[in-house]
Design a protein around this nucleic acid. Structure first.
Lengths: 357, 357
DNA sequence: AAGTTTCATTAACACGCGTTAATAGATTCC
DNA sequence: GGAATCTATTAACGCGTGTTAATGAAACTT
């Protein structure tokens, strides 16, 4: 077992004190150390293969130099999250630049408060980013009260914690409007998740709003709840097709769910967009290559991650924030899965209406 | 600024020494502490809201209670990795159970050695899991020599580090054999990544082997390199279609790449599997809902993650390993994207052969 | 030339916990 | 009844670093 190299060893070799070594490695602006001394220290450190001990550092400085990405989802949903790679990619970019570490953790429902406190009080991390929180998360109040640096990716009504998100409601509104503008009047909705997830309920809200604004009535039978993965989207679409309700377009709350819906539509022998137009949400990289190419709402996932991270850094430094709440713009990417409703289809719809309702 | 709660405070309130508190919290098997004392300590801790400081703990015990997931990919590729969520999901399961943290990090090419050493020597982490390493990673030797607990997800020829993986070559062999069994003789290949990634070269190797074993000759013009994402798969397939070479089937090195290929085939007005059969690799959850349903090689990603993690734990404890090298079984999932070659198509092929070669 | 400021460095303490060796008390043994 | 064993607890040291207040040396003032 080799002895670990400490700052003491470096100091000895460089012929200076341990304190000086510390100044060099943290390039302390208060205490100027002569360039030549600095050089000596650096060389000694390099020669010995010195790596400052993270724990000791954290203990003495009271900063963990780490942040946490916290997910409240079931593991099943984590595995199904097509967005996670982009989120992590964005976080890693910023984190790397700032020389801090990224911890990743998931918390079981019911354990939130304890987990949040443990992570921050035990100083595993200096701050945290909460991914897709839920309405009913009791830990959020604790975070708010204790003033723990924390940014939410998403929004939680009733919480005053800083967040970065898109305007889910407006984006959904835009997507559904696109369908309405193409002449569709019977538009179904498949949510991206259960409604306890804020993004799901907000997107559904946008769907409702768009229909109302257009003077269309809302048929609750055309609303289906899915559950993150494409399998749930497939099931939801089968429900819709089997229900006898008629519709010429679908708004899906996520691309994953939309993919499942596409499969169900194909399987039923219907064509897209001839029989049914469909618009997704997220615009994951694969959406362009779905068949047909999926019209979707582009969500700047990478940018959301980066901005969250930046915001968190400011919070951690105690700096004043320009904006506590950030809403990033979305954009409708039009592809082949949506088209104007066909005359024939319209008639067909009419017949069906007579038939089924 | 509230004072943090230390074990000293807990000891005082409980009327015992700090040492006893430590014994209770680590439930030390050597030193038995009376149940009633234990209870007193627990209550005092709960009452004060005591969370043992992780840094101090790590410093004193010389264990970080954390492992790292290290990726050597460019951030772009991380964002495109459909597997990552499953991997992370699997790791989180084990890590949660063992009460340790998961750090996630990416390392730039050229910085590997430094990053590996920094993470382990500085005791940020006790051990690491390397995801999709490359042939040319110089840091691996350092890890091996220093005896740092480390598990590779994937394989690196020439390295003796423990790994968990699938038998890429055999799995690819199986996939291509499936096509051969369906009567295909002109089979193209699109790799999942550049060949400096071991999984890519191994899968290509399996492809070659399968053709050779079947007595088919290998046409280098039918081999295209893709680059993780579906866009590169799309480009690769366009190259193939535009090259004038003829083929009736394609083996794609990943489902993401296969998806891009599907899109290119549709765009060219060809049918699947009528004109071209295609088999993917990974069997990501979405593969079943691609159009048509993608025949693919199921990779137990979650299980790979779990086993890697377990293996790493054993290494960290210094326990002897049952197996340093683990190869998990794969399975071919047959869906609608592959079918027997049609007679007509065979003739057509014949004509084309005369025409182009 | 003595005093004042600036610059470069350091001694010494603090951070919160794990752990070993020692202590005091209770129990058992011959 | 004293020695020996066991039980429950603790004092004290070490982990490797950050940081403050102090020190000495040099440069600049009056």
């Amino acid at each position: 077992m080799e002895k670990r190299v400490t700052s003491h060893d470096v100091a000895e070799l460089a012929g200076v004190s341990r304190t000086t070594v510390s100044f060099v490695f943290n390039d302390d602006k208060q205490h100027f150390v002569r360039p030549e001394t600095r050089q000596k220290v650096r060389e000694a450190a390099h020669q010995l293969g010195y790596y400052p001990n993270a724990s000791a550092r954290a203990l003495a400085s009271k900063q963990a130099k780490a942040i946490g990405l916290i997910m409240t989802r079931d593991p099943h949903y984590i595995a199904a999250d097509n967005f996670l790679p982009q989120i992590i990619g964005g976080l890693l970019d910023v984190v790397k630049e700032k020389q801090i570490s990224l911890l990743i953790e998931w918390v079981e429902p019911g354990e939130q408060t304890h987990t949040y406190l443990n992570l921050t009080q035990a100083k595993h991390i200096d701050g945290m980013i909460l991914l897709t929180p839920r309405f009913d998360d009791p830990g959020l109040k604790a975070l708010e009260q204790l003033g723990i640096p924390c940014v939410i990716m998403g929004q939680v009504p009733g919480s005053n914690l800083p967040f970065v998100d898109i305007d889910n409601c407006a984006a959904a509104h835009m997507a559904v409007n696109h369908l309405i503008a193409l002449g569709h009047t019977r538009i179904a909705c498949i949510t991206n998740a259960r409604l306890s997830y804020t993004s799901a309920s907000q997107r559904l809200q946008g769907y409702r709003q768009a229909l109302m604004d257009a003077g269309l009535n809302i048929d609750e039978n055309l609303i289906q709840e899915a559950d993150f993965d494409s399998a749930s989207g497939y099931a939801a679409m089968r429900n819709l097709l089997g229900s006898g309700s008629n519709f010429s377009a679908v708004f899906a709350g996520s691309d994953a769910v939309a993919l499942g819906a596409l499969a169900a539509i194909h399987e039923a022998g219907l064509t897209i967009p001839g029989d049914i137009s469909i618009v997704g949400f997220d615009d994951i990289p694969e959406a362009a290559h779905y068949f047909p190419g999926l019209t979707s709402v582009r969500v700047p996932a990478n940018e959301i991650a980066r901005q969250s991270c930046r915001l968190l850094m400011h919070l951690m430094k105690g700096e004043p924030l320009a904006d506590r709440f950030i809403l990033l713009p979305t954009e409708l990417i039009s592809r082949q899965s949506t088209s104007e409703i066909e005359r024939s289809r319209k008639h067909h719809q009419g017949e069906k209406l007579v038939h089924f309702t």
